[in-house]
Design a protein around this nucleic acid. Structure first.
Lengths: 363, 363
DNA sequence: TTTGTAAATGACAACGTTGTCATTCGACTT
DNA sequence: AAGTCGAATGACAACGTTGTCATTTACAAA
């Protein structure tokens, strides 16, 4: 910058102004400075600026893998951050055990970020006792409340419940559930929603089947369910498994959606990864979007880390306890989708599942 | 840090040493400092450190969307970076037109990164005239050579060629191609490889069909190809389309793989997004991994931006021309996969496609 | 106890920017 | 032409860390 100032024959501060508040400097001067910058290939030194400003304009994202719903989260946060001129800095968990919250926070604390978002797809051991490093706000995407951190979550339970309710309204009586991996929070909550809807209707919940999110595991579950002649509807915990189950049912001679209705959850990027629904023209599924929590969490974070005071110098301000408010939100961000298009209300739903009410075999 | 030093009764420099080179400070002192840090919740200020060191230990990644192969790239770079203690900072293109290289570079130049990687899934207008900002090395993942930037690329052409060759070896004579979107570089190169193999064998290349990566478009193409009775093998530009085509063929009464062999390309994360192959138990496909270029490009970048001199002060060093070497690499990083497992050589391949050599209709 | 030597520690400047506040400039009024 | 006032610019310190180099300390040998 000193070179630019010299080249343009102005002071350091003027160069700074041209960069940050061009309106306050005369056009002639501004042009001179801009030309000098161009000539010298000047780029502002981000470290120095951050040092002065006390903020990085970047939020850290700890994500546990790059798969399904997590991708959606990454996508949503990247977009929301970009809108506010924030960058996102990514830490990905490598192996299953590797990254408890505290360790992730420690690593993130080393990086130039103003705050961080944990996308907690599965429960970790140190969730309860985790405390965010002072001065580095944490927002956790999880359905559980945390003692000190804000949490945000899509209402997966409500989504599953609504879907299951709709199936019940349509006359289904034996609705089975294909769960995801047992460590998945989303799977747990969807299962809870499914049970809830059945309970409300006074229906019994047959044992859920357990998959691992893969279409293969869905196929396996579907093969088992094909034996259950009573079963006329299946709630699968993601679309891969729904797809697999559908194949298995077809292979077993049970038609989808004629004999059996299948509803899946799709956390993939709705616009760019339309694999399940599209890959099988005869599939009947619902989607729920996971973009809500990601957008919300980044907003939360960016608001709270917005440039408040130019620079915090007193140790009290920098290291003192974090008195900012904590938020706990579990909202309905999900929505019903059929073949890529959003369904306004579950009432539009009947297109999905023509039901043979008690026609077939139901004793 | 000054608070920690005061609390522990030592100098600033000693605190710095405890953080960076703990071995050089006596255990007693070290403990005192560590306790003080603990008590005060001290985190090193990354901006200040970077300011002194002249490096951020972070690489920027410009990615055009979060889909298919790009995901794989993100994954690979994130892993490689983490191994070296680097963070990655992500910029995602929002809309189709939004982000030419120069604009992306400008934005990235604002961020605390030591270098950047462009994952160029499609050709952009300003590719040729793009020049990386001085002091901020660029590596581009693309099959094209660039005048000043290093480029890295998986040999997509070679992969398609090898796949097509294998089909020819197996007796196929009419092998058709389903292309991806026309702006895709990968699609272009795979098409080239397909043509090459056919040329080499003296076979004619029927017009390629054009999809948009979606299974729907693959279905459509498959429906068309089902009419072509001569066609016994299909090379689809990704697995989604392969899957769609397979469905269409099945629906048209042509069995896969009995009547028609289908080979797809899968750029998804091989380990975590096994949708196509797994979703259809009867599919026969190949995969090629895209992790190679991502790993290589980040290595390239991290090597070239490694802490050379503690801090660059002279304007010559900071803003002078970039004399570092440029690399252009197009390697065979791809590999054949069948149902999730790697096939050592195309010779293991015959399991895929039982062929009715000239039995059927081939005049 | 004294000396010699290596290890441990400290004082201070510097990294490149921006905030504060003082100063200079330019244009408009009288 | 002098005076006035706001806009434009500049001088300087400060942000929190680390490198350099000087100083102190600890310990072993004499």
């Amino acid at each position: 910058m000193v070179d630019v100032a010299h080249e343009a024959g102005v002071s350091l501060k003027t160069v700074s102004r041209v960069v940050n508040e061009p309106d306050t400097v005369r056009p002639a001067t501004r042009n001179a400075v801009n030309e000098a910058m161009e000539r010298l290939g000047f780029r502002t030194n981000y470290a120095a600026r951050s040092l002065k400003l006390g903020a990085y304009k970047s939020i850290g994202l700890v994500i546990f893998d790059l798969f399904g719903g997590n991708l959606s989260v990454l996508n949503g946060i990247a977009s929301a951050a970009a809108d506010q001129g924030y960058a996102i800095t990514l830490i990905k968990r490598m192996s299953k055990e590797e990254l408890p919250l505290s360790e992730a926070a420690r690593r993130m604390g080393q990086l130039p970020v103003d705050g961080m978002i944990f996308n907690l797809a599965q429960m970790v051991d140190d969730f309860a006792e985790y405390r965010s490093p002072v001065g580095l706000r944490t927002v956790i995407i999880t359905p559980f409340e945390h003692a000190t951190c804000s949490t945000v979550s899509d209402d997966q339970e409500g989504a599953a419940r609504a879907a299951c309710r709709r199936l019940i309204e349509l006359g289904h009586r034996h609705i089975r559930f294909i769960a995801g991996t047992s460590d998945s929070l989303a799977s747990k909550n969807r299962e809870r929603g499914w049970r809830l809807a059945l309970d409300e209707a006074g229906l019994a919940a047959a044992d859920p089947l357990h998959g691992d999110w893969s279409a293969d595991s869905g196929y396996e579950a579907g093969a088992t369910l094909a034996q259950d002649q009573k079963c006329t509807a299946i709630l699968a915990c993601n679309d891969n498994m729904a797809n697999g189950a559908m194949q298995a049912l077809n292979d077993a001679g049970r038609r989808v959606p004629d004999d059996v209705s299948i509803i899946g959850f799709d956390d993939s990027l709705a616009d760019s990864v339309p694999h399940t629904i599209l890959s099988s023209p005869s599939a009947s599924t619902i989607r729920n979007s996971a973009q809500g929590p990601s957008k919300r969490s980044s907003t939360l974070l960016m608001r709270s880390t917005a440039f408040s005071s130019p620079a915090r110098s007193s140790s009290e301000a920098a290291y003192g306890p974090d008195h900012r408010s904590k938020t706990t939100e579990t909202k309905r961000w999900w929505a019903f989708f059929v073949r890529g298009t959003r369904i306004a209300e579950p009432s539009d739903f009947k297109t999905i599942s023509p039901i043979s009410d008690d026609g077939d075999k139901q004793s």
